[in-house]
Amino acid sequence: MKHVTSMLVACLVTFSAAAQAADDPPFLDQKSAATADGHAFFTHICQACHMADGKGAAGAGAYPALAANPRLASALYPAAMVLNGRAGMPAFGNVLSNQQIADVVNYVRTHFGNDYHDPLTAAQVQALRPQEKP
């Protein structure tokens, strides 16, 4: 069993190294972060919890599926979640720009069986941020 497992791990390592040698390295470096699109943010961050197929996962608690999730009908709901976080979900308002948040929300709302074509704009994300006092 031990040998089987270690061989499996070795295979996985080789396979994934080949799979990732293309243009989607596992970590966004300085240059690519500035130009990363919604797909890149999904594969690097969102799928950590919502999984590569967007179907979420369940243990003592669950990560909601993004696939076919009716809560995505309004773009403002996922936008606020990404911006502020809630419960298990971290907040990304300090590390993603308004445009980047819009990009990743728009990506999720047009993939995984979701078919919403009213894109979120950076201005709408900005409006969700706490307003600075004059």
Binding site: L12, F27, T43, I45, A48, C49
Partner: peptide, 9 residues
């Protein structure tokens, strides 16, 4: 980003 990878990766 690490979490988004499978354990072997």
């Amino acid at each position: 980003e690490f979490t988004a990878l499978d354990p072997a990766e």
